[in-house]
Design a protein around this nucleic acid. Structure first.
Length: 203
DNA sequence: AAATCTGTCAACCGCCAACTT
DNA sequence: GAAGTTGGCGGTTGACAGATT
């Protein structure tokens, strides 16, 4: 039926990109523009699958990417947007100029999530009531081979602490004062980047 | 100094929606 | 309308570096 997204034929490069590969991709996109990712690798002389090329371009090679540390205003905005949208990283990224969904997702998982937990806030539903606990969630502790996510049943038993309430009502009731404009807009420019005033959540 | 642990983040994988034939 | 194709998304993995024992 459905072909694998990328032909798993031999000779395909995987893993970290080399400088030469980056240059080939940049040159090709500059000349032909984005799109046609499936046929791009062959046309650009890359031994990568199209998906991999797209990811590399979108996340690291695209011009105007910020990279590096997130500012406090960016952190604040991510937390608020996550409260409203959940793990819709691409939507969240759309509100942060120069940031990619992958970068935001990583930053959330490594920094912000923990930050909320330390403040006693459940990062899943942004409600208070979560006891500050060790940096790593329980299900991620110890051997990765024993890695275990709570099942729905266990979740129910565990009570509200770990439960992620159904959306979107729960998010809205949890954050009644949140009033972000999430209408579809043109990509960010310097002029329309940050909202000048953010709603206060009291984090 | 070596071994082990922990955190970070680039990249991969599988799924799905949109689009095309 | 069904089947096939493509691009995009979110979850997850694994390599690496730095910290700790």
């Amino acid at each position: 039926m459905r072909k694998p997204c990328c032909e798993k034929k031999g000779g395909m490069n995987k893993g970290a990109w080399s400088k030469q590969e980056d240059e080939k991709l940049i040159d090709y996109v500059h000349e032909h523009g984005e799109g046609c990712w499936r046929s791009l690798p062959q046309a650009a002389g890359l031994l990568r699958c199209g998906k991999s090329c797209r990811l590399r371009w979108v996340n690291y090679l695209r011009p105007n990417l910020k990279r590096g540390n997130f500012g406090e205003d960016e952190e604040d905005l991510i937390i608020k947007l996550h409260a409203l949208l959940g793990n819709r990283w691409s939507l969240i990224a759309g509100r942060l100029p120069g940031r990619t969904d992958n970068e935001i997702k990583n930053y959330w998982n490594t920094h912000l999530r923990r930050k909320l937990i330390q403040r006693g806030i459940d990062p899943n539903n942004h409600r208070p009531g979560l006891l500050a606990c060790p940096s790593k969630p329980q299900h991620l502790k110890s051997n990765t081979s024993e890695l275990k996510l709570p099942s729905h049943e266990e979740d129910e038993e565990a009570g509200s602490v770990l439960r992620c309430p159904s959306e979107p009502e729960s998010r809205m009731t949890a954050l009644p004062d949140l009033n972000l404009d999430l209408t579809i807009a043109l990509p960010f420019t310097e002029e329309n980047s940050f909202p000048t005033k953010l709603p206060q959540l009291g984090y």
